[in-house]
Design a protein around this nucleic acid. Structure first.
Lengths: 145, 145
DNA sequence: CCGCATCCAAAATGATACTG
DNA sequence: CAGTATCATTTTGGATGCGG
């Protein structure tokens, strides 16, 4: 451990160099913290499952009512946008906006946590891994979003 | 953008080098995704607000019933532990375990998102910032946890 | 098939009072 | 101080139906 780095087991709060007006975690949890929201972003952003019924099928327990709610919330926040496919039936594809792509590092941090602490559920061989090994094509979280 | 890096606007899924047995996001969202959970970890892990009524006061809307529920869930998952202060009154302090410290990068990714996209709510001067500027003492997310 | 809307039941959460 | 107990409210789930 480097000297001078504030680590998590200290008794003192980790204070930002710039004081906060409002807690940034509170704000983003307010936007992203409702049930199903992060999993819907996973579908659209990572798995490219981007149609209404495809998302429904990929998330057992999610109902059309709640999916409609979440999609409209995410659209209103500017995280996703609907791309109309001008075809016979009215078909919509959802995709991430630039703002929505900036939630991918959040998704990756959730992946990193599970891959370390729940390897027997995540991987066939039950060996813990970090993100570098899972996504070697990504050199830094900043390459995403 | 580096050539060969898979970015979020591609039509193709971002596939892991090692196939998943179960979705790691689903797993960690199941553990961390309930209402108030991440904010309680913020209190204990970042702000060092680690006593029951202090946490209650720091989170308007959170009730003692739900706080008890969440603390016991987090303890059962091994993310926090209670440190008894054997004193006059029965006083408990909650602290992160090593596993719990590994949720700090998740909290930081939420901070990074708000600091970029909601700077007017987060900062006095309304200027967007990244984590390096907010927490210059942290050289990498890996220094945490 | 597709994207919803409606109705009702169940689950999660909130408000308040109370206890060791 | 650190929780419980009880009840009210909000959010979410399940079933079904409907116009393209």
């Amino acid at each position: 451990m480097h000297p001078g780095i504030q680590t998590a087991d200290t008794r003192k709060p980790l204070t930002p160099a710039v004081p906060y007006r409002n807690c940034p975690i509170l704000i983003s949890v307010g936007i992203l913290g409702k049930k199903w929201t992060l999993l819907i972003l996973r579908d659209i952003g990572l798995l490219k499952i981007n149609r209404f019924n495809q998302i429904l099928r990929s998330l057992p327990g999610l109902t059309p009512r709640v999916l409609t709610l979440r999609l409209h919330e995410l659209e209103a926040e500017g995280l996703i946008r609907a791309v109309m496919i001008h075809d016979t039936a009215r078909i919509v594809e959802w995709e991430l906006t630039d703002k929505g792509m900036d939630t991918i590092p959040i998704l990756m941090s959730f992946i990193a946590f599970s891959a370390r602490w729940y390897p027997d559920e995540v991987f066939m061989d039950q060996r813990a891994r970090d993100l570098d090994e899972i996504y070697p094509q990504i050199h830094s979280l900043k390459d995403l979003g």
